[in-house]
Design a protein around this nucleic acid. Structure first.
Length: 500
RNA sequence: GCCGGUAUCGUCUAGGGGUUAGGACACGUGGUUCUCAGCCACGGAACCGGGGUUCGAAUCCCCGUACCGGUACCA
């Protein structure tokens, strides 16, 4: 079984295309098949090496590796269409020689007039066939005279092309509505339908899984397989991925490229798992599936025929879930760039990295994306008692009860206590404050939270307080901005309270 | 216009001639917690419309409607 993914390097990898790549990859990996990556860069104006590199990078990030491709080669290379031009030319010659293709000298204006006339008569729009009957000698003469000519395929009349699509079943087309399509443009570049057939034929592709925008190309390609004498692959056409408004997913719906999701702090395993479930169901109720199980269970026949809406809320849930399962060191490393962007650190050394890893329990499960980590951890890096007290929600804590007494007791207890490096130390301290202030529950904890973090909400104090003091003990070389200790915070808060 | 396709909760979907039409996300309510989040429990929520076949249709067939794709010397 040989499958391929064939992107055009004209931009970042779109999640819809990523899903197509994933389905191909899943099928290959689940059946011991070969996964081929081919770059369709015949459109020289729009294709860029940077886009190609970006797409390869995004595929790798998603965990989709390939067995043959432009970077690693393979037995059926080259794997970039721009490097296969001679192959297309040779195939075009073959078709010309056997009379299955012909030169067309029609101008854009003529073509446009034909189309307008067909529309006016409510007829199918297709190439009118003006050059189909040209004598080869005449065509040769005109070409020799320098007249530009495209090469068109001679579509057989009066036939029905039928194929069995693995997701939509039997699909049939009459060749009468097809029209002689262009194989090679007048400037020499091969057209898409021609290049894919040559490539898939030569590369021995057995199964093609692609977007449903290709179903109407399929009969043309089938005709070409037949003319060229190659055995056609089995086809499976995937319904498109839509936005919430049921229009095809595009920029105006927000993030659409794999790179954007990556930058916003989605985990590759989450995006991959989510994408697998848009248009495919494992057939049971478990939706959180490790990648090897995805590959084992994936089946083209179980793919849905209808278009699916990309549901960011569900992706978020999945990402949150995967973050909870992720290795702390990995998560710490992944949130580093986000914290750097927020200005909370430069380049953490080993000690700094270990500290960041220890912070992940406060982040995982509490946020949907890693880009939210800085907000969740802000209290560690930013502490300003006066500014906090100026805030309404913070000030409100001191409008009732004995919150001031709690803060005073906290500050005092902290003067004699050692650093709160772990949960037990923190709890022992809380016990002292509780006794000294006579407060409990919310009346006890909330003032402590506010005095230590400057916030009325945030991670569990059990986790937050020890994190503060462990952060305060970090050497300047750790790469993080200085973190002030609990003692310092309580003292500053108590005096700010006294002033106010 | 012409050709092709699709239609189950708001969303992703399971199912499929007789079911209380199942799950997940989201949403609502309650519980837990110092707070937010989380977690737990509970709840509301769907077979596009019309014909036909049949004892019986959400399921099969036809029509309609809506939506999607194509209709290129784009890919």
């Amino acid at each position: 079984m040989r499958l391929r993914f064939a992107p055009s390097p004209t931009g970042r990898l779109h999640v819809g295309n990523a899903r197509t790549a994933l389905f191909n990859w899943l099928l290959a990996r689940g059946h011991g098949g070969t996964f081929i990556l081919r770059i369709e860069d015949t459109d020289a104006e729009r294709s860029t090496p940077a886009s190609e590199a970006g797409i390869l990078d995004d595929l790798r990030w998603l965990g989709l590796d390939w067995d043959e491709g432009p970077d690693i080669g393979g037995p059926h290379g080259p794997y970039r269409q721009s490097e296969r031009l001679a192959l297309y030319a040779a195939h075009a010659d073959r078709l010309l020689a056997t009379g299955q293709a012909y030169y067309c000298f029609c101008t854009a204006e003529e073509l446009e007039r034909d189309r307008a006339r067909q529309l006016a008569h409510q007829l199918p729009t297709k190439y009118a066939g003006r050059c189909r009957q040209l004598l080869p000698d005449d065509a040769q003469r005109r070409r020799a005279a320098g007249e530009p000519a495209a090469i068109r395929f001679k579509v057989p009349h009066g036939r029905e092309v039928v194929f069995d699509d693995r997701v939509r079943g039997r699909v049939a087309w009459h060749t009468d509505v097809i029209g002689d399509f262009v194989l090679v443009r007048s400037e020499g570049r091969p057209a898409y339908n021609f290049a894919v057939v040559v490539d898939d034929g030569l590369m021995g592709v057995t199964d093609v899984i692609r977007g449903e925008d290709h179903v109407s190309n399929t009969p043309r390609q089938l005709l070409l397989y037949e003319a060229l004498g190659y055995v056609p692959p089995r086809f499976a056409h995937l319904a498109l991925v839509m936005g919430p408004d049921h229009a095809p997913l595009s920029k105006r719906h927000g993030a659409t490229s794999v790179g954007e999701f990556r930058a916003r702090g989605y985990l590759p395993e989450a995006l991959r798992n989510y994408l697998a479930l848009v248009g495919w169901s494992p057939g049971h109720d478990d939706e959180l599936l490790p990648v090897d199980e995805l590959a084992r269970r994936f089946s083209v026949d179980a793919v849905s025929k209808s278009a699916g809406v990309f549901d960011v809320a569900k992706l978020d849930w999945m990402n949150r879930t995967y973050m909870k399962q992720a290795d702390p060191a990995r998560l710490g490393a992944l949130m580093t760039p986000h914290l750097r962007d927020a200005g909370y650190l430069t380049a953490p050394d080993e000690e700094g990295a270990a500290f960041l890893a220890s912070l992940t329990p406060m982040v995982a499960g509490a946020v949907d994306r890693l880009e939210e980590a800085p907000a969740r951890l802000r209290f560690l890096f930013v502490f300003d008692a006066a500014a906090a007290l100026a805030r309404e929600d913070v000030a409100a804590e001191f409008g009732h009860g004995d919150a001031r007494g709690v803060v005073a007791a906290l500050a005092e207890a902290l003067e004699t206590a050692g650093p709160l490096t772990d949960r037990d130390a923190y709890r022992a301290l809380v016990a002292r404050v509780k006794e000294a202030s006579g407060q409990k529950g919310r009346a006890l904890f909330h003032p402590i939270r506010v005095a230590l973090t400057g916030e009325t909400g945030g991670p569990e104090l059990d986790l937050a307080a020890p994190a503060i003091d462990r952060g305060a003990a970090l050497a300047p070389s750790s790469g993080l901005v200085p973190i002030r200790s609990c003692r310092h915070r309580a003292r500053a808060f108590a005096s700010a309270l006294a002033r106010g």
